[in-house]
């Protein structure tokens, strides 16, 4: 495992921890898109079906279980927790996320590494992950005051994506037969979606003012 991959996994892990911290200690999910969290729960459920068929490493298995468990519990908290669910910005979080799933499924049926159930689900999870952040970015644009934890959550997620791109470049040049076009293209699309947000995030950080996105 190279340093980019490890750093990518760790920033991904931290992003989830930041979100759980916000939910557990502050008992608030203000500014967090349930739509995006539901998409992530679906992304990890469909991608990690190979938990039952392929053993890669203890690290791999534990991380998969963490991402599965955390994404499902975040959705549960936002939907059902007596206190947390009251802070959910339901009226602002209106992105019709189910509409993203059908094109992703069709694309996965057409473009996959092999036409098997696991491979189609794997491709579907990558296409869906690429666009899963969209409801969150839309919610951020609508929410006037973005708290630090929400900003840090998205920042960490973006860092995770960028580090994975560096990891692919590194692996391409150091490993033989390391080619994953579906992962790369959908990963780059996903990373580009964050670029716009980061532009405003760093501007506000540079000027030391609260993050405010244009309408």
């Amino acid at each position: 495992m190279n340093i980019f991959r490890l750093a990518g996994d760790m920033t991904h892990l931290f992003s989830v921890l930041v979100l759980l911290l916000k939910i557990h200690t502050i008992k608030s999910c203000a500014g967090i898109s349930l739509k995006t969290q539901e998409l992530y729960a679906i992304v990890f459920t469909t991608r990690y079906l190979d938990l039952f068929t392929t053993y890669i490493s203890l690290y791999n298995t534990i991380m998969k279980l963490i991402f599965l468990g955390s994404s499902i519990s975040i959705v549960w908290y936002m939907r059902h927790h007596k206190v947390v669910r009251r802070s959910y910005d339901k009226d602002q979080d209106t992105f019709r996320h189910y509409l993203l799933m059908l094109p992703c499924l069709l694309l996965a049926l057409l473009i996959n590494e092999k036409f098997t159930f696991l491979e189609v689900m794997w491709a579907f999870s990558l296409y869906l992950e690429a666009v899963a952040i969209l409801p969150q970015l839309v919610l951020l644009q609508r929410t006037r005051n973005i708290d630090n934890l929400t900003g840090q959550y998205v920042l960490l997620l973006g860092a995770y994506r960028a580090l994975y791109v560096l990891n692919w470049i590194y692996r391409y040049f150091t490993e033989e037969n390391y080619v994953h076009w579906i992962t790369w293209v959908s990963g780059i699309v996903q990373t580009l979606l964050y670029a716009d947000f980061f532009y405003y995030y760093f501007q506000s950080w540079k000027n030391n003012v609260k993050l405010q996105l244009p309408a």
């Binding site: 991959r5 190979d50 890669i56 490493s57 037969n177 994953h180 992962t183």
Partner: peptide, 10 residues
Amino acid sequence: AESSGLKDEL
């Protein structure tokens, strides 16, 4: 090139 097939990334 062919894919290695092993999906060890998260």
